[in-house]
Design a protein around this nucleic acid. Structure first.
Lengths: 339, 339
DNA sequence: GGAGCCTTCAAAAGCGCTTTTGGTCTCGTA
DNA sequence: TACGAGACCAAAAGCGCTTTTGAAGGCTCC
């Protein structure tokens, strides 16, 4: 069932039917209702390709996978994507996931030239990310999940990583901790830099040191979390608390603490950043973990909306949001034994 | 730069340029080379929408997210999607992720009618899954990741869940275990049923019982893994070994074991199913976990190929694969202390 | 040397929609 | 009565590609 047939059934022209369906004003409400009734009855919905060709819009938001087996590719992405997709669907848009077989640049370039997407979402930005100027040059609207340095303002949604980690460190300092370890993500990533800044500023403001031995950085896996934490605990002056950049790192960190015969909370305090994924919940741990919390699912939802705004012509400079992060106090943070 | 301009630059007709680029035979190799050179020079690639409209193919494989916040939605999906996308890209196809805002049925129906995708991938099938007959009725080729009961044969790629879990149980039985707990996924899911069958058959074959108290089933999270395992360990005759359906459940199970003052390996043996995600690696645990292993990333890769075959007309009955699962022996499985 | 064939290409139709253009008909106003 | 305005709709152009149709030229072969 296509538009032509539907029009024939109704005894109307294609254009009238099209205008009725698309909400134009110069169709009598009587005709409009007949058209809608027929569309429902014949279960008509317009062909996507034809619609796209005619309008020049693809009706899709693109997102490019980093690369084949990138360690940055984490399970959080599922939650993010799910939010993105839900929200895009509400705006009648789809999410097109594309792989970067050769280089990321080539992928974006291809997306642009083929007109497969109207905008792209950029995940896991580096401190200085070449993709942003590239997309700017290619003329594809782009919204960054996170922030990056860029000559021209870009649309983004970020959480206040610096503030969150400063607060987390301040909480520990308030409890009496003097040596606070950071189990951070990959140092090339923008968010990791922001978190380190937050951690460091809290320590320096309190007149404490932020030595390199307490500043761990690696991919955010269970294994790396274990290794970094175990390393810190084995140092001559081990930390009395650690802050982890992800729940996966935290799982490893907790194992390292226990393997050393120490108890989480009473011996070593732990704070983890929680993106809100279902598979591992910090409040279900023993003891429940204190967290900095921000739902990555909701970030995905919002980013699709921002992308839609961008497509409708909103200026990138007006599409910049930084969300506050909740600090949720639980039982894994206590005063240190020997301050 | 579009086809018309390119043709004008070359002094050729659109049709000749199109035929040259698409590898038809009735273009002289001389002309063909000129065309390719020009296409490269002007960085031309055909408009996706126009191509789709003309060919009638959307060039995309669809996948529908279960729903807004479905507990079945797991982080493994990222790895799966990454494989799917890579492989699809190699065949010049994209992956269209779509949300099911109302019902899953409506989403698939819309995808079908709008012609947005040429085939769909169906994840996490239930034992009896309404989506398969629906897609059959709608006439969209579909490949299932897993297996489900269906009146007509459907294309699928599954791993040998039953065999894997039978082997796992047999390994434990061989070591002398008599009470083996199962920390399984949601019992509505097909794979969970298969795994239970494997576990049960190994026990019964060995003349052992498979009581309900040892047959745990829930979503595959850290928390559920903890709860199920803790429950079993608190029973009058606790298991001496547990088999977990996911690495997330296993993380929880291990915590439950330790929280009870027991040691993994020497007190309680643990086997986990490992999908090969990077964030949590079983070999990095202490002790390293024995696993049934199958890469979900590679499954995604293969499924895109199967979908492409299906689109090209291959019969669904000829697109059925069951992959063997590796049983990787590590240090978390030892003979029981008191058999 | 003309019929028949192959190679190479141009012209044009068509994919299913949106949007522009223009025409008809009614109505209110001068 | 005449006329511009407004409501409604049909016809047709156009989006950028693929594919069919058919024409021109060069070739072989009887």
């Amino acid at each position: 069932m296509n538009l032509k047939e539907l029009a024939r059934h109704l005894g109307l022209s294609q254009s009238t039917v099209s205008r009725a369906l698309n909400g134009y004003q110069d169709v009598s409400s009587d005709t409009r209702e007949r058209v809608f009734a027929a569309a429902r009855r014949f279960d008509y919905s317009p062909n996507a390709s034809a619609h796209r060709l005619a309008t020049g819009h693809s009706g899709a938001i693109g997102i490019v996978f980093p690369s084949d087996k990138d360690p940055l590719l984490d399970p959080l992405f599922t939650d993010f994507l799910s939010g993105l997709t839900n929200s895009a669907a509400r705006r009648q848009m789809d999410i097109l996931v594309s792989a970067s077989l050769d280089t990321a640049e080539a992928s974006y370039r291809r997306l642009a030239q083929r007109g497969s997407v109207d905008a792209v979402v950029l995940s896991s930005p580096l401190v200085e990310d070449a993709r942003v100027p590239l997309l700017d040059k290619l003329g594809i609207p782009c919204v960054v999940h996170g922030r990056t340095r860029s000559p021209r303002p870009h649309a983004f949604l970020d959480i206040d990583n610096e503030g969150a980690f400063r607060q987390a460190a301040e909480l520990l300092i308030g409890l009496g901790h003097r040596r606070i370890g950071l189990v951070n993500g990959d140092a090339r990533q923008a968010f990791a830099v922001h978190r380190e800044t937050g951690w460091r500023s809290a320590l320096l403001n309190a007149g404490l040191e932020a030595p390199d031995v307490l500043n761990g950085s690696d991919i955010m896996t269970d294994e790396a979390g274990y290794r970094l934490t175990a390393g810190m605990l084995a140092a001559p002056t081990p930390p009395t608390a650690v802050i982890c950049s992800s729940i996966f790192s935290a799982v490893g960190a907790c194992r390292a603490i226990r393997d050393r015969g120490l108890t989480i909370g009473s011996d070593i305090s732990v704070i983890a950043h929680d993106d809100g994924i279902t598979s591992i919940r910090p409040e279900a741990h023993h003891p429940p973990l204190t967290t900095t919390f921000s739902s990555i699912h909701r970030a995905g939802e919002r980013i699709a909306e921002i992308a839609a705004d961008l497509i409708e012509g909103k200026a990138p400079a007006d599409c910049q949001e930084v969300w506050p992060v909740d600090l949720i106090f639980r039982d894994s943070t206590r005063p240190p034994k020997r301050p």
